[in-house]
C-alpha cells in the first residue's frame, strides 16, 4: 500500500507539472486541474510517508530515499501553498515542478532502505531544525522559479504577464518576498541546528562541512539582499543571483552528503 500510494503521488505530481509546462507554453488556464492533481498527490504522499513512519518507527530523516521523499513532499507543499495564496506565483509552476520531478526521479532510483535512527535524533529540535530547513528550501525554490522566468526572455515574460505581473520590477519584488522568507527560515534552521548540535555533540558550531556550506548559503543570501537594497541591482541581475543562491543551497543540502564523511550529513 505504501508503494502504491507513493506511485499515485508521483503520478499526480508528474501530471500536474506536465500540465503546468503546457499551460505556460500554450498560455492555457489549467490552474484548477493543477491544484487538484498536486493536492491529490500530496494526500497520497502524506499517507505513504505515514505508513512508512509507522512501519519503520521513525520519520523520513535517515536514508537518502527518505530524505528525497520528504523533500519532494515539503517542496510540493510549500509550492502549493504559495500557488494558492499568491496568484502571481502560478506561472512559476512550469519551472518549480520540473525541478521537483528531478528529485522524484532521483528518489525512485534510490534504494528505499530503512536506516538506523540514532538516539541523538530523539528530540523535538530535529523537527524544528528540519521543518525550518524545508520551509527555507521551499521558499527559495519559489523565488528561484520566478527568477528563472524573469531571465527566460519573451516566453518567461509572457508567462509572468499571464500571472498578472506586468513588468520585471514587480516580478523581482515577488521573488524578493520569497527570498526574504527563505532568509528568515534559514536563520531559524541554523539557530535550531546549533541548539541541537550542542545537546547531541557537545558543541553548537564546529565548522563541519554541512555547517560551513549552510553558513555560506546564509552569507550568500545576506549578500544578495544587501546588494539588492544598497546597490539597487537591476531586476535581471537579482534574478540571476537568486538562481545562483538556489544552486548553492541545493549543492549544500543534496550534494554534500556524497562528498563528506563527517557525522553531520545533510539532506534532511
Amino acid at each position: 500500500m505504501e508503494a502504491q500510494l507513493l506511485g499515485a503521488a508521483v503520478a499526480g505530481y508528474g501530471l500536474a507539472g506536465s500540465l503546468a509546462v503546457v499551460a505556460t507554453v500554450l498560455c492555457r488556464r489549467l490552474e484548477t486541474v493543477i491544484v487538484g492533481l498536486l493536492a491529490g498527490g500530496l494526500v497520497a504522499h502524506t499517507a505513504s510517508l505515514a505508513l512508512r513512519w509507522d512501519r519503520v518507527g521513525h520519520g523520513p530523516f535517515i536514508s537518502m530515499f527518505e530524505v528525497l521523499s520528504s523533500n519532494v513532499w515539503s517542496l510540493t507543499l510549500v509550492f502549493l501553498a504559495a500557488y494558492l495564496r499568491v496568484r502571481a506565483v502560478r506561472p512559476a509552476a512550469a519551472v518549480a515542478l520540473p525541478f521537483i520531478f528531478v528529485l522524484m526521479a532521483w528518489m525512485l532510483v534510490t534504494h528505499p532502505d530503512d536506516g538506523h535512527f540514532p538516539a541523538t535524533y530523539r528530540t523535538l529540535w530535529l523537527y524544528a531544525h528540519v521543518g525550518f530547513g524545508k520551509v527555507f528550501l521551499g521558499s527559495l525554490l519559489v523565488a528561484a522559479a520566478v527568477g528563472v522566468l524573469m531571465v527566460s526572455g519573451p516566453p518567461g515574460a509572457r508567462a509572468l504577464r499571464a500571472g498578472g505581473i506586468a513588468d520585471e520590477v514587480r516580478a523581482e519584488h515577488l521573488a524578493l518576498r520569497f527570498l526574504a522568507l527563505a532568509f528568515v527560515f534559514e536563520s531559524l534552521m541554523l539557530v535550531t541546528g546549533a541548539i541541537w548540535a550542542q545537546d547531541a555533540w557537545g558543541r553548537y558550531w564546529a565548522w563541519d562541512p554541512l555547517e560551513t556550506w549552510s553558513f555560506l548559503t546564509w552569507l550568500a543570501l545576506a549578500a544578495l539582499l544587501h546588494a539588492r537594497f544598497t546597490l539597487r541591482l537591476a531586476p535581471r541581475a537579482t534574478a540571476i543571483a537568486i538562481a545562483g543562491v538556489f544552486v548553492l543551497a541545493i549543492l549544500t543540502f543534496f550534494g554534500l552528503p556524497f562528498v563528506s564523511t563527517a557525522l553531520h550529513k545533510g539532506a534532511i
Binding site: W207, P209, T212, L216, L219, A223, T230
Partner: peptide, 18 residues
C-alpha cells in the same frame, strides 16, 4: 559597499578554514 566586500572576505576565510 564595504559590507559586501567584507561578506566576501568572510566567505573566503570560512572556505579556507574548512
Amino acid at each position: 559597499r564595504l559590507t559586501l566586500v567584507l561578506l566576501a572576505v568572510v566567505a573566503l576565510a570560512v572556505i579556507a578554514h574548512a
